[in-house]
Deep mutational scan, measured.
Amino acid sequence: MDSLVVLVLCLSCLLLLSLWRQSSGRGKLPPGPTPLPVIGNILQIGIKDISKSLTNLSKVYGPVFTLYFGLKPIVVLHGYEAVKEALIDLGEEFSGRGIFPLAERANRGFGIVFSNGKKWKEIRRFSLMTLRNFGMGKRSIEDRVQEEARCLVEELRKTKASPCDPTFILGCAPCNVICSIIFHKRFDYKDQQFLNLMEKLNENIKILSSPWIQICNNFSPIIDYFPGTHNKLLKNVAFMKSYILEKVKEHQESMDMNNPQDFIDCFLMKMEKEKHNQPSEFTIESLENTAVDLFGAGTETTSTTLRYALLLLLKHPEVTAKVQEEIERVIGRNRSPCMQDRSHMPYTDAVVHEVQRYIDLLPTSLPHAVTCDIKFRNYLIPKGTTILISLTSVLHDNKEFPNPEMFDPHHFLDEGGNFKKSKYFMPFSAGKRICVGEALAGMELFLFLTSILQNFNLKSLVDPKNLDTTPVVNGFASVPPFYQLCFIPV
Protein backbone atom coordinates (compact mmCIF):
# COMPACT_ATOMS: atom_id res chain seq x y z
CA MET A 1 0.00 0.00 0.00
CA ASP A 2 2.86 2.37 0.91
CA SER A 3 4.49 1.87 -2.49
CA LEU A 4 1.17 2.64 -4.22
CA VAL A 5 0.86 5.90 -2.27
CA VAL A 6 4.42 6.86 -3.24
CA LEU A 7 3.67 6.08 -6.89
CA VAL A 8 0.50 8.20 -6.85
CA LEU A 9 2.37 11.08 -5.17
CA CYS A 10 5.19 10.87 -7.74
CA LEU A 11 2.74 10.90 -10.64
CA SER A 12 0.85 13.81 -9.10
CA CYS A 13 4.07 15.79 -8.68
CA LEU A 14 5.02 15.03 -12.27
CA LEU A 15 1.64 16.24 -13.52
CA LEU A 16 1.86 19.42 -11.44
CA LEU A 17 5.41 20.06 -12.64
CA SER A 18 4.29 19.55 -16.23
CA LEU A 19 1.36 21.95 -15.85
CA TRP A 20 3.54 24.55 -14.09
CA ARG A 21 6.28 24.41 -16.73
CA GLN A 22 3.79 24.73 -19.55
CA SER A 23 1.81 27.57 -17.98
CA SER A 24 4.88 29.52 -16.85
CA GLY A 25 6.46 29.43 -20.29
CA ARG A 26 3.43 30.01 -22.46
CA GLY A 27 3.16 33.70 -21.60
CA LYS A 28 6.48 34.32 -23.38
CA LEU A 29 6.24 31.81 -26.20
CA PRO A 30 4.06 32.02 -29.33
CA PRO A 31 0.50 30.65 -29.10
CA GLY A 32 -0.37 27.05 -29.84
CA PRO A 33 -2.75 24.21 -28.99
CA THR A 34 -3.23 23.43 -25.30
CA PRO A 35 -0.85 20.62 -24.33
CA LEU A 36 -1.82 17.61 -22.24
CA PRO A 37 0.19 16.96 -19.07
CA VAL A 38 3.36 14.90 -19.59
CA ILE A 39 2.70 14.01 -23.26
CA GLY A 40 2.14 17.56 -24.54
CA ASN A 41 0.63 17.87 -28.04
CA ILE A 42 1.89 14.54 -29.33
CA LEU A 43 -1.64 13.19 -29.90
CA GLN A 44 -2.54 16.24 -32.00
CA ILE A 45 0.27 15.63 -34.47
CA GLY A 46 0.22 12.98 -37.18
CA ILE A 47 3.57 11.29 -36.54
CA LYS A 48 3.50 9.67 -40.00
CA ASP A 49 3.20 13.07 -41.70
CA ILE A 50 4.29 15.81 -39.30
CA SER A 51 4.50 18.36 -42.10
CA LYS A 52 0.79 18.08 -42.90
CA SER A 53 -0.09 18.54 -39.23
CA LEU A 54 2.08 21.66 -39.04
CA THR A 55 0.32 23.13 -42.07
CA ASN A 56 -3.09 22.55 -40.49
CA LEU A 57 -1.99 24.08 -37.17
CA SER A 58 -0.51 27.13 -38.94
CA LYS A 59 -3.97 27.90 -40.33
CA VAL A 60 -5.22 28.23 -36.75
CA TYR A 61 -2.24 29.76 -34.92
CA GLY A 62 -0.34 31.60 -37.67
CA PRO A 63 3.21 31.23 -39.02
CA VAL A 64 4.89 31.08 -35.59
CA PHE A 65 3.41 28.78 -32.95
CA THR A 66 4.39 26.55 -30.04
CA LEU A 67 3.97 22.81 -29.63
CA TYR A 68 4.92 20.62 -26.69
CA PHE A 69 6.55 17.27 -27.42
CA GLY A 70 6.35 15.77 -23.96
CA LEU A 71 7.41 18.48 -21.51
CA LYS A 72 9.57 20.22 -24.10
CA PRO A 73 8.33 23.36 -25.90
CA ILE A 74 9.12 23.58 -29.60
CA VAL A 75 8.58 26.75 -31.62
CA VAL A 76 7.45 26.06 -35.19
CA LEU A 77 8.25 28.39 -38.10
CA HIS A 78 5.90 28.01 -41.06
CA GLY A 79 6.13 29.94 -44.34
CA TYR A 80 8.92 31.71 -46.19
CA GLU A 81 8.81 35.02 -44.31
CA ALA A 82 9.12 33.46 -40.85
CA VAL A 83 11.81 31.00 -41.99
CA LYS A 84 13.85 33.72 -43.74
CA GLU A 85 13.56 36.10 -40.79
CA ALA A 86 14.92 33.44 -38.43
CA LEU A 87 17.51 31.53 -40.47
CA ILE A 88 18.88 34.37 -42.61
CA ASP A 89 18.12 37.72 -40.94
CA LEU A 90 18.81 36.33 -37.43
CA GLY A 91 21.12 33.55 -38.57
CA GLU A 92 23.49 33.58 -35.59
CA GLU A 93 20.71 33.55 -33.00
CA PHE A 94 18.96 30.60 -34.69
CA SER A 95 22.14 28.64 -35.53
CA GLY A 96 21.99 26.19 -32.63
CA ARG A 97 21.17 22.53 -33.11
CA GLY A 98 18.04 21.40 -31.32
CA ILE A 99 17.92 18.45 -28.95
CA PHE A 100 18.06 15.12 -30.79
CA PRO A 101 18.52 12.49 -28.04
CA LEU A 102 19.19 9.60 -30.42
CA ALA A 103 22.01 11.55 -32.07
CA GLU A 104 23.41 12.38 -28.62
CA ARG A 105 23.67 8.65 -27.90
CA ALA A 106 25.32 8.04 -31.27
CA ASN A 107 27.87 10.87 -31.41
CA ARG A 108 28.03 12.47 -27.93
CA GLY A 109 27.88 15.96 -29.44
CA PHE A 110 30.78 15.47 -31.86
CA GLY A 111 30.80 15.84 -35.63
CA ILE A 112 29.39 18.56 -37.86
CA VAL A 113 25.63 17.93 -37.94
CA PHE A 114 24.64 17.69 -34.27
CA SER A 115 27.40 19.64 -32.51
CA ASN A 116 26.96 23.14 -31.09
CA GLY A 117 28.90 26.23 -30.09
CA LYS A 118 32.66 26.55 -30.58
CA LYS A 119 33.00 22.86 -31.48
CA TRP A 120 30.48 23.14 -34.32
CA LYS A 121 31.92 26.40 -35.65
CA GLU A 122 35.50 25.10 -35.79
CA ILE A 123 34.65 21.71 -37.32
CA ARG A 124 32.27 23.26 -39.86
CA ARG A 125 34.81 25.93 -40.87
CA PHE A 126 37.53 23.30 -41.26
CA SER A 127 35.27 20.94 -43.25
CA LEU A 128 34.13 23.67 -45.64
CA MET A 129 37.69 24.86 -46.21
CA THR A 130 38.99 21.31 -46.76
CA LEU A 131 36.22 20.40 -49.19
CA ARG A 132 36.84 23.61 -51.12
CA ASN A 133 40.58 22.95 -51.24
CA PHE A 134 39.81 19.54 -52.71
CA GLY A 135 37.65 21.27 -55.26
CA MET A 136 34.05 21.09 -54.05
CA GLY A 137 32.35 23.11 -56.76
CA LYS A 138 35.68 23.16 -58.63
CA ARG A 139 37.47 20.97 -61.13
CA SER A 140 39.03 18.13 -59.11
CA ILE A 141 35.83 16.94 -57.47
CA GLU A 142 33.99 17.38 -60.76
CA ASP A 143 36.50 14.91 -62.23
CA ARG A 144 35.64 12.43 -59.47
CA VAL A 145 31.91 12.81 -60.05
CA GLN A 146 32.35 12.42 -63.82
CA GLU A 147 34.41 9.27 -63.27
CA GLU A 148 31.70 7.87 -61.01
CA ALA A 149 29.02 8.81 -63.55
CA ARG A 150 30.85 6.74 -66.16
CA CYS A 151 31.03 3.80 -63.73
CA LEU A 152 27.33 4.21 -62.97
CA VAL A 153 26.47 4.05 -66.68
CA GLU A 154 28.53 0.86 -67.06
CA GLU A 155 26.74 -0.75 -64.10
CA LEU A 156 23.38 0.15 -65.62
CA ARG A 157 24.46 -1.43 -68.92
CA LYS A 158 25.01 -4.69 -67.03
CA THR A 159 21.28 -4.85 -66.29
CA LYS A 160 20.87 -5.64 -70.04
CA ALA A 161 17.59 -3.69 -70.22
CA SER A 162 15.98 -6.12 -67.74
CA PRO A 163 13.61 -4.87 -65.02
CA CYS A 164 15.57 -3.74 -61.97
CA ASP A 165 15.17 -1.91 -58.68
CA PRO A 166 17.56 1.08 -58.99
CA THR A 167 17.96 1.62 -55.23
CA PHE A 168 21.31 -0.11 -54.79
CA ILE A 169 23.06 1.16 -57.93
CA LEU A 170 21.90 4.75 -57.38
CA GLY A 171 23.20 4.53 -53.81
CA CYS A 172 26.64 3.32 -54.86
CA ALA A 173 27.48 6.34 -57.01
CA PRO A 174 27.19 9.15 -54.41
CA CYS A 175 28.65 6.88 -51.72
CA ASN A 176 31.74 6.32 -53.87
CA VAL A 177 32.14 10.07 -54.37
CA ILE A 178 32.18 10.53 -50.58
CA CYS A 179 34.64 7.61 -50.27
CA SER A 180 36.98 9.29 -52.74
CA ILE A 181 36.83 12.54 -50.75
CA ILE A 182 37.30 10.94 -47.30
CA PHE A 183 39.49 7.90 -48.11
CA HIS A 184 40.95 8.83 -51.54
CA LYS A 185 39.50 5.57 -52.81
CA ARG A 186 36.50 4.41 -54.80
CA PHE A 187 35.16 0.86 -54.48
CA ASP A 188 33.96 -1.68 -56.98
CA TYR A 189 30.18 -2.00 -56.65
CA LYS A 190 30.63 -5.67 -55.67
CA ASP A 191 33.20 -5.01 -52.91
CA GLN A 192 31.92 -6.60 -49.68
CA GLN A 193 33.10 -3.79 -47.38
CA PHE A 194 31.41 -1.30 -49.66
CA LEU A 195 28.21 -3.38 -49.68
CA ASN A 196 28.17 -3.46 -45.86
CA LEU A 197 28.63 0.31 -45.69
CA MET A 198 25.83 0.84 -48.20
CA GLU A 199 23.50 -1.47 -46.28
CA LYS A 200 23.99 0.44 -43.01
CA LEU A 201 23.42 3.82 -44.67
CA ASN A 202 20.26 2.61 -46.41
CA GLU A 203 18.87 1.08 -43.22
CA ASN A 204 19.53 4.25 -41.24
CA ILE A 205 17.58 6.58 -43.55
CA LYS A 206 14.58 4.24 -43.35
CA ILE A 207 14.82 3.99 -39.56
CA LEU A 208 15.21 7.77 -39.15
CA SER A 209 12.07 8.34 -41.22
CA SER A 210 9.92 6.00 -39.13
CA PRO A 211 7.30 7.22 -36.60
CA TRP A 212 9.10 5.24 -33.87
CA ILE A 213 12.15 7.50 -34.09
CA GLN A 214 9.96 10.59 -33.62
CA ILE A 215 8.64 9.01 -30.42
CA CYS A 216 12.17 8.08 -29.24
CA ASN A 217 13.45 11.61 -29.72
CA ASN A 218 10.59 13.15 -27.77
CA PHE A 219 10.53 10.61 -24.94
CA SER A 220 14.24 9.92 -24.58
CA PRO A 221 14.08 7.30 -21.74
CA ILE A 222 12.70 4.91 -24.39
CA ILE A 223 16.14 4.88 -26.03
CA ASP A 224 17.83 3.24 -23.04
CA TYR A 225 15.09 0.95 -21.74
CA PHE A 226 12.97 -0.22 -24.69
CA PRO A 227 13.74 -2.49 -27.65
CA GLY A 228 13.16 -1.12 -31.14
CA THR A 229 14.72 -0.06 -34.41
CA HIS A 230 16.61 2.75 -32.67
CA ASN A 231 19.00 0.09 -31.33
CA LYS A 232 19.69 -1.07 -34.88
CA LEU A 233 20.47 2.51 -35.91
CA LEU A 234 22.94 2.91 -33.02
CA LYS A 235 24.63 -0.40 -33.97
CA ASN A 236 24.90 0.74 -37.60
CA VAL A 237 26.55 4.00 -36.56
CA ALA A 238 28.97 2.07 -34.31
CA PHE A 239 29.84 -0.20 -37.27
CA MET A 240 30.55 2.81 -39.49
CA LYS A 241 32.71 4.45 -36.82
CA SER A 242 34.78 1.29 -36.36
CA TYR A 243 35.27 1.05 -40.14
CA ILE A 244 36.37 4.70 -40.33
CA LEU A 245 38.73 4.19 -37.37
CA GLU A 246 40.44 1.36 -39.30
CA LYS A 247 40.94 3.74 -42.23
CA VAL A 248 42.28 6.44 -39.90
CA LYS A 249 44.89 4.01 -38.54
CA GLU A 250 45.93 3.11 -42.10
CA HIS A 251 46.29 6.82 -42.90
CA GLN A 252 48.35 7.45 -39.75
CA GLU A 253 50.85 4.81 -40.88
CA SER A 254 51.22 6.01 -44.47
CA MET A 255 50.47 9.75 -44.44
CA ASP A 256 52.77 12.23 -46.16
CA MET A 257 52.46 15.51 -44.22
CA ASN A 258 53.52 17.45 -47.32
CA ASN A 259 51.00 15.84 -49.64
CA PRO A 260 47.55 15.28 -48.08
CA GLN A 261 45.38 13.07 -50.29
CA ASP A 262 41.96 13.26 -48.67
CA PHE A 263 39.80 14.54 -45.82
CA ILE A 264 41.30 12.16 -43.25
CA ASP A 265 44.85 13.30 -44.08
CA CYS A 266 43.84 16.95 -43.69
CA PHE A 267 42.12 16.27 -40.36
CA LEU A 268 45.14 14.37 -38.99
CA MET A 269 47.42 17.25 -40.05
CA LYS A 270 45.11 19.68 -38.24
CA MET A 271 45.28 17.47 -35.13
CA GLU A 272 49.08 17.60 -35.27
CA LYS A 273 49.07 21.41 -35.54
CA GLU A 274 46.58 21.71 -32.68
CA LYS A 275 48.27 19.27 -30.27
CA HIS A 276 49.79 22.11 -28.24
CA ASN A 277 46.53 24.09 -28.18
CA GLN A 278 44.64 22.05 -25.61
CA PRO A 279 41.79 21.45 -25.28
CA SER A 280 41.40 21.08 -29.06
CA GLU A 281 38.22 20.29 -30.97
CA PHE A 282 40.29 18.18 -33.39
CA THR A 283 40.40 14.67 -31.93
CA ILE A 284 40.04 11.12 -33.27
CA GLU A 285 36.50 10.97 -31.87
CA SER A 286 35.66 14.21 -33.66
CA LEU A 287 37.15 12.86 -36.91
CA GLU A 288 35.13 9.62 -36.64
CA ASN A 289 31.86 11.45 -36.13
CA THR A 290 32.53 14.10 -38.77
CA ALA A 291 33.25 11.38 -41.34
CA VAL A 292 30.04 9.54 -40.37
CA ASP A 293 28.12 12.81 -40.79
CA LEU A 294 29.61 13.37 -44.25
CA PHE A 295 28.62 9.84 -45.27
CA GLY A 296 25.09 10.20 -43.92
CA ALA A 297 24.50 13.65 -45.39
CA GLY A 298 26.31 12.99 -48.66
CA THR A 299 25.11 9.53 -49.62
CA GLU A 300 21.51 8.70 -48.76
CA THR A 301 20.12 12.19 -49.38
CA THR A 302 21.56 12.29 -52.91
CA SER A 303 20.71 8.66 -53.73
CA THR A 304 17.12 9.10 -52.48
CA THR A 305 16.76 12.23 -54.62
CA LEU A 306 18.14 10.38 -57.67
CA ARG A 307 15.73 7.49 -57.08
CA TYR A 308 12.82 9.90 -56.77
CA ALA A 309 13.98 11.76 -59.89
CA LEU A 310 13.86 8.63 -62.06
CA LEU A 311 10.40 7.78 -60.72
CA LEU A 312 9.15 11.26 -61.65
CA LEU A 313 10.76 11.04 -65.10
CA LEU A 314 8.98 7.70 -65.63
CA LYS A 315 5.73 9.32 -64.53
CA HIS A 316 6.24 12.27 -66.90
CA PRO A 317 7.73 10.93 -70.17
CA GLU A 318 7.12 14.29 -71.89
CA VAL A 319 9.56 15.91 -69.43
CA THR A 320 12.12 13.15 -70.02
CA ALA A 321 11.89 13.66 -73.78
CA LYS A 322 12.59 17.41 -73.45
CA VAL A 323 15.62 16.77 -71.23
CA GLN A 324 17.00 14.21 -73.69
CA GLU A 325 16.49 16.62 -76.59
CA GLU A 326 18.46 19.27 -74.70
CA ILE A 327 21.23 16.76 -73.90
CA GLU A 328 21.45 15.78 -77.58
CA ARG A 329 21.61 19.42 -78.69
CA VAL A 330 24.11 20.70 -76.11
CA ILE A 331 26.28 17.68 -75.23
CA GLY A 332 25.72 15.09 -77.94
CA ARG A 333 26.85 11.48 -77.60
CA ASN A 334 30.63 11.73 -77.87
CA ARG A 335 31.61 13.29 -74.54
CA SER A 336 30.58 13.20 -70.89
CA PRO A 337 28.38 15.94 -69.40
CA CYS A 338 30.23 18.62 -67.41
CA MET A 339 29.12 21.44 -65.13
CA GLN A 340 29.77 24.07 -67.82
CA ASP A 341 26.89 22.51 -69.76
CA ARG A 342 24.36 23.44 -67.08
CA SER A 343 24.22 27.13 -68.03
CA HIS A 344 23.31 26.08 -71.60
CA MET A 345 20.62 23.63 -70.44
CA PRO A 346 17.91 25.68 -68.69
CA TYR A 347 15.21 23.02 -69.00
CA THR A 348 17.38 20.28 -67.50
CA ASP A 349 18.47 22.66 -64.73
CA ALA A 350 14.81 23.44 -64.04
CA VAL A 351 13.98 19.71 -63.88
CA VAL A 352 16.76 19.08 -61.33
CA HIS A 353 15.47 21.95 -59.18
CA GLU A 354 11.83 20.90 -59.55
CA VAL A 355 12.63 17.34 -58.45
CA GLN A 356 14.14 18.69 -55.23
CA ARG A 357 11.30 21.13 -54.66
CA TYR A 358 8.56 18.61 -55.38
CA ILE A 359 9.87 15.68 -53.31
CA ASP A 360 10.55 17.91 -50.28
CA LEU A 361 13.21 15.45 -49.09
CA LEU A 362 13.57 16.80 -45.53
CA PRO A 363 10.13 18.24 -44.68
CA THR A 364 11.14 19.74 -41.32
CA SER A 365 14.92 19.74 -41.78
CA LEU A 366 16.81 18.98 -38.56
CA PRO A 367 15.80 20.81 -35.37
CA HIS A 368 17.42 24.19 -34.74
CA ALA A 369 17.76 25.96 -31.39
CA VAL A 370 18.17 29.58 -30.35
CA THR A 371 21.62 30.40 -28.96
CA CYS A 372 20.38 33.16 -26.65
CA ASP A 373 17.16 34.66 -25.31
CA ILE A 374 15.64 36.25 -28.39
CA LYS A 375 12.69 38.53 -29.08
CA PHE A 376 11.06 37.27 -32.26
CA ARG A 377 7.87 38.86 -33.59
CA ASN A 378 6.93 40.16 -30.13
CA TYR A 379 7.50 36.76 -28.52
CA LEU A 380 10.35 35.97 -26.13
CA ILE A 381 11.99 32.66 -26.97
CA PRO A 382 14.35 31.45 -24.19
CA LYS A 383 17.90 30.32 -24.97
CA GLY A 384 18.08 26.64 -25.93
CA THR A 385 14.46 26.40 -27.14
CA THR A 386 14.12 23.94 -30.03
CA ILE A 387 12.99 25.46 -33.34
CA LEU A 388 11.21 23.32 -35.94
CA ILE A 389 11.44 24.61 -39.52
CA SER A 390 8.76 23.66 -42.04
CA LEU A 391 10.70 23.48 -45.31
CA THR A 392 7.52 22.10 -46.89
CA SER A 393 5.79 25.42 -46.32
CA VAL A 394 8.54 27.16 -48.32
CA LEU A 395 9.07 24.63 -51.11
CA HIS A 396 5.31 24.19 -51.60
CA ASP A 397 4.30 27.84 -51.25
CA ASN A 398 1.38 28.30 -53.66
CA LYS A 399 2.16 31.96 -54.41
CA GLU A 400 5.74 31.29 -55.49
CA PHE A 401 4.94 27.94 -57.09
CA PRO A 402 1.41 27.81 -58.58
CA ASN A 403 -0.08 24.33 -58.10
CA PRO A 404 2.79 23.29 -55.80
CA GLU A 405 1.55 19.69 -55.54
CA MET A 406 2.10 19.27 -59.28
CA PHE A 407 5.49 18.29 -60.73
CA ASP A 408 6.17 21.10 -63.20
CA PRO A 409 9.67 22.24 -64.33
CA HIS A 410 8.12 25.56 -65.42
CA HIS A 411 8.21 26.55 -61.75
CA PHE A 412 11.87 27.36 -62.51
CA LEU A 413 11.54 28.78 -66.04
CA ASP A 414 10.57 32.28 -67.13
CA GLU A 415 8.33 33.06 -70.11
CA GLY A 416 11.33 32.93 -72.46
CA GLY A 417 12.34 29.45 -71.31
CA ASN A 418 15.34 30.70 -69.34
CA PHE A 419 16.20 29.23 -65.95
CA LYS A 420 14.62 31.26 -63.14
CA LYS A 421 16.11 31.23 -59.64
CA SER A 422 13.82 31.29 -56.63
CA LYS A 423 14.70 32.48 -53.13
CA TYR A 424 12.12 29.94 -51.94
CA PHE A 425 14.35 27.07 -53.11
CA MET A 426 15.64 25.70 -49.78
CA PRO A 427 15.97 21.91 -50.05
CA PHE A 428 19.22 22.08 -48.06
CA SER A 429 17.75 24.48 -45.45
CA ALA A 430 19.21 28.01 -45.23
CA GLY A 431 21.44 30.23 -43.15
CA LYS A 432 24.39 29.12 -41.03
CA ARG A 433 23.20 25.51 -40.78
CA ILE A 434 22.76 25.01 -44.53
CA CYS A 435 24.14 21.65 -45.70
CA VAL A 436 27.95 21.69 -46.07
CA GLY A 437 27.70 19.58 -49.22
CA GLU A 438 25.10 21.69 -51.03
CA ALA A 439 27.38 22.40 -54.02
CA LEU A 440 28.51 18.76 -54.24
CA ALA A 441 24.92 17.46 -54.14
CA GLY A 442 23.87 19.85 -56.91
CA MET A 443 26.81 18.74 -59.04
CA GLU A 444 26.07 15.04 -58.51
CA LEU A 445 22.37 15.37 -59.33
CA PHE A 446 23.07 17.22 -62.58
CA LEU A 447 25.93 14.99 -63.78
CA PHE A 448 24.41 11.65 -62.78
CA LEU A 449 20.98 12.41 -64.25
CA THR A 450 22.31 13.81 -67.53
CA SER A 451 24.73 10.87 -67.88
CA ILE A 452 21.88 8.38 -67.38
CA LEU A 453 19.55 10.12 -69.85
CA GLN A 454 22.37 10.57 -72.37
CA ASN A 455 22.88 6.80 -72.49
CA PHE A 456 19.48 5.27 -71.73
CA ASN A 457 15.77 5.54 -72.32
CA LEU A 458 13.71 4.81 -69.21
CA LYS A 459 10.96 2.22 -69.52
CA SER A 460 8.28 1.76 -66.87
CA LEU A 461 6.84 -1.69 -66.18
CA VAL A 462 3.37 -0.18 -65.78
CA ASP A 463 1.44 2.58 -67.49
CA PRO A 464 3.10 5.86 -66.36
CA LYS A 465 -0.34 7.16 -65.33
CA ASN A 466 -0.53 4.36 -62.74
CA LEU A 467 2.83 5.08 -61.11
CA ASP A 468 2.44 6.21 -57.50
CA THR A 469 4.88 8.93 -56.44
CA THR A 470 3.60 9.28 -52.85
CA PRO A 471 6.42 8.82 -50.31
CA VAL A 472 6.17 5.61 -48.28
CA VAL A 473 7.58 7.32 -45.20
CA ASN A 474 7.44 11.03 -44.56
CA GLY A 475 8.99 11.61 -41.15
CA PHE A 476 12.61 12.75 -41.15
CA ALA A 477 12.89 12.16 -44.92
CA SER A 478 10.51 11.57 -47.82
CA VAL A 479 11.38 8.12 -49.18
CA PRO A 480 9.94 7.11 -52.58
CA PRO A 481 7.88 3.93 -52.98
CA PHE A 482 9.44 0.78 -54.41
CA TYR A 483 9.45 0.59 -58.19
CA GLN A 484 11.27 -1.14 -61.02
CA LEU A 485 12.28 0.08 -64.46
CA CYS A 486 14.31 -0.91 -67.51
CA PHE A 487 17.34 1.05 -68.71
CA ILE A 488 17.20 0.73 -72.50
CA PRO A 489 20.53 1.69 -74.16
CA VAL A 490 20.12 4.56 -76.62
Rank of each mutant, 00 (worst) to 15 (best):
residue 2 D to Y: 08
residue 3 S to K: 02
residue 6 V to S: 14
residue 6 V to N: 05
residue 9 L to C: 07
residue 13 C to M: 11
residue 14 L to C: 09
residue 14 L to T: 11
residue 14 L to P: 03
residue 19 L to P: 00
residue 21 R to I: 08
residue 22 Q to H: 12
residue 23 S to D: 12
residue 25 G to V: 15
residue 26 R to P: 08
residue 30 P to Y: 01
residue 30 P to L: 01
residue 39 I to D: 01
residue 47 I to F: 14
residue 51 S to F: 03
residue 52 K to E: 08
residue 53 S to N: 15
residue 56 N to I: 07
residue 56 N to L: 10
residue 56 N to P: 11
residue 61 Y to K: 02
residue 65 F to A: 01
residue 65 F to C: 06
residue 67 L to Q: 00
residue 70 G to T: 06
residue 71 L to I: 09
residue 76 V to G: 01
residue 77 L to K: 01
residue 79 G to V: 00
residue 83 V to Q: 03
residue 83 V to C: 08
residue 84 K to P: 01
residue 86 A to L: 05
residue 86 A to G: 10
residue 89 D to R: 02
residue 89 D to N: 14
residue 90 L to G: 09
residue 91 G to E: 11
residue 91 G to K: 07
residue 94 F to N: 03
residue 95 S to T: 06
residue 98 G to C: 13
residue 99 I to A: 13
residue 101 P to L: 05
residue 101 P to A: 10
residue 102 L to G: 07
residue 104 E to L: 13
residue 106 A to W: 15
residue 107 N to S: 13
residue 110 F to Q: 10
residue 111 G to N: 07
residue 111 G to V: 02
residue 115 S to C: 08
residue 117 G to F: 05
residue 118 K to P: 10
residue 121 K to S: 14
residue 123 I to H: 12
residue 125 R to Q: 10
residue 126 F to M: 08
residue 128 L to F: 10
residue 129 M to R: 15
residue 132 R to T: 15
residue 132 R to P: 07
residue 133 N to Q: 15
residue 135 G to R: 09
residue 135 G to P: 11
residue 136 M to D: 07
residue 137 G to D: 15
residue 141 I to S: 04
residue 141 I to T: 04
residue 143 D to N: 09
residue 143 D to K: 07
residue 144 R to L: 14
residue 144 R to Q: 07
residue 145 V to H: 00
residue 153 V to M: 06
residue 163 P to G: 05
residue 164 C to G: 02
residue 165 D to E: 03
residue 168 F to K: 09
residue 169 I to R: 02
residue 169 I to A: 07
residue 176 N to M: 02
residue 178 I to W: 03
residue 180 S to M: 09
residue 181 I to Y: 10
residue 182 I to P: 00
residue 184 H to W: 05
residue 185 K to L: 03
residue 187 F to D: 00
residue 188 D to Q: 09
residue 195 L to M: 13
residue 196 N to Q: 14
residue 197 L to S: 01
residue 198 M to N: 08
residue 198 M to S: 04
residue 198 M to Q: 09
residue 199 E to K: 12
residue 199 E to R: 13
residue 203 E to L: 07
residue 204 N to K: 03
residue 204 N to A: 06
residue 205 I to H: 10
residue 206 K to Q: 13
residue 207 I to A: 06
residue 207 I to S: 06
residue 207 I to V: 09
residue 208 L to R: 15
residue 208 L to Q: 11
residue 210 S to A: 05
residue 210 S to V: 03
residue 212 W to M: 08
residue 216 C to T: 09
residue 219 F to K: 02
residue 220 S to R: 12
residue 222 I to E: 02
residue 225 Y to S: 05
residue 226 F to T: 06
residue 226 F to C: 13
residue 228 G to T: 05
residue 229 T to D: 11
residue 229 T to P: 15
residue 229 T to W: 09
residue 230 H to K: 08
residue 230 H to I: 10
residue 232 K to L: 08
residue 234 L to C: 12
residue 234 L to F: 09
residue 234 L to T: 09
residue 236 N to G: 03
residue 241 K to A: 03
residue 242 S to E: 14
residue 242 S to T: 12
residue 242 S to C: 08
residue 244 I to G: 01
residue 247 K to R: 14
residue 247 K to E: 13
residue 252 Q to P: 04
residue 252 Q to M: 08
residue 257 M to A: 12
residue 258 N to K: 15
residue 262 D to Y: 02
residue 262 D to M: 01
residue 263 F to A: 02
residue 263 F to E: 03
residue 265 D to L: 02
residue 267 F to D: 03
residue 267 F to I: 05
residue 268 L to T: 05
residue 269 M to G: 11
residue 271 M to Y: 04
residue 274 E to C: 11
residue 274 E to V: 06
residue 275 K to M: 03
residue 275 K to C: 07
residue 275 K to I: 11
residue 276 H to G: 12
residue 276 H to A: 11
residue 278 Q to G: 10
residue 283 T to G: 07
residue 283 T to H: 14
residue 285 E to A: 05
residue 288 E to L: 15
residue 288 E to Y: 15
residue 288 E to A: 12
residue 289 N to C: 13
residue 292 V to K: 04
residue 294 L to N: 00
residue 297 A to R: 14
residue 300 E to Q: 15
residue 301 T to L: 13
residue 301 T to C: 10
residue 303 S to A: 14
residue 306 L to H: 00
residue 307 R to Q: 05
residue 308 Y to G: 06
residue 308 Y to R: 00
residue 311 L to V: 05
residue 313 L to V: 02
residue 319 V to R: 03
residue 323 V to D: 01
residue 324 Q to S: 12
residue 324 Q to H: 10
residue 328 E to M: 15
residue 328 E to W: 11
residue 329 R to T: 09
residue 330 V to Q: 10
residue 330 V to A: 07
residue 336 S to G: 12
residue 337 P to M: 03
residue 337 P to T: 06
residue 338 C to L: 08
residue 340 Q to Y: 11
residue 341 D to S: 01
residue 345 M to N: 01
residue 354 E to A: 02
residue 354 E to Q: 00
residue 357 R to E: 00
residue 361 L to H: 08
residue 367 P to G: 04
residue 370 V to A: 12
residue 371 T to Q: 07
residue 371 T to G: 10
residue 374 I to C: 10
residue 374 I to S: 10
residue 378 N to C: 02
residue 378 N to R: 11
residue 379 Y to T: 03
residue 379 Y to R: 03
residue 380 L to C: 15
residue 383 K to S: 09
residue 383 K to L: 04
residue 384 G to C: 04
residue 384 G to D: 11
residue 385 T to K: 01
residue 387 I to F: 06
residue 388 L to G: 01
residue 395 L to E: 12
residue 396 H to G: 08
residue 401 F to T: 04
residue 403 N to Q: 08
residue 403 N to C: 13
residue 404 P to Y: 06
residue 406 M to D: 14
residue 407 F to S: 00
residue 413 L to A: 03
residue 416 G to A: 15
residue 420 K to P: 01
residue 422 S to E: 03
residue 423 K to Q: 12
residue 423 K to C: 12
residue 424 Y to D: 04
residue 426 M to V: 07
residue 426 M to K: 05
residue 427 P to M: 10
residue 427 P to S: 10
residue 431 G to I: 07
residue 431 G to W: 05
residue 434 I to N: 12
residue 437 G to R: 03
residue 444 E to W: 03
residue 444 E to Y: 05
residue 448 F to A: 01
residue 449 L to K: 01
residue 449 L to Y: 02
residue 449 L to C: 07
residue 450 T to G: 03
residue 453 L to F: 04
residue 453 L to R: 01
residue 455 N to G: 04
residue 455 N to H: 14
residue 460 S to G: 07
residue 462 V to E: 14
residue 463 D to R: 09
residue 465 K to N: 15
residue 469 T to K: 01
residue 470 T to L: 15
residue 471 P to R: 09
residue 472 V to P: 06
residue 473 V to D: 09
residue 473 V to W: 14
residue 474 N to K: 11
residue 477 A to T: 09
residue 478 S to K: 12
residue 479 V to R: 15
residue 480 P to E: 02
residue 484 Q to Y: 02
residue 485 L to C: 14
residue 485 L to S: 02
residue 486 C to E: 08
residue 486 C to P: 01
residue 488 I to V: 15
